[in-house]
């Protein structure tokens, strides 16, 4: 499965509680669309560290890296060796 698919499915299943792919665009802002609450983003970070073997630094916890499926995909690509 592609990185994008893994992340999309995770968000759909765990925050929108659906398998309907049309419920989420990969460019949708998690904040603007009210998809994640304040601790939800911490859960996402745990998931990313676990799934992709990366470590997210405090300074990297910003919307540019984590606020949409596409932003996360780019962030993972940068982080992985």
């Amino acid at each position: 499965m592609s990185t994008e698919a893994i992340i999309r499915n995770y968000i759909l299943e765990n925050y929108l509680f659906t398998d309907d792919q049309s419920a989420l665009n990969s460019t949708d802002s998690f904040l603007d669309k009210d998809i994640l609450d304040s601790t939800g983003i911490l859960e996402v970070i745990y998931f990313l560290e676990d799934e992709f073997g990366i470590k997210v630094e405090d300074t990297e916890m910003v919307p540019e890296n984590l606020d949409s499926v596409n932003n996360i995909v780019s962030f993972i690509a940068k982080k992985r060796p």
């Binding site: 911490l42 970070i45 300074t59 916890m61």
Partner: peptide
């Protein structure tokens, strides 16, 4: 799991 520990996200919250 404090809502204040997620940096820019907690600001948004």
């Amino acid at each position: 799991h404090s809502p204040t520990t997620s940096g820019a996200f907690s600001k948004r919250f």
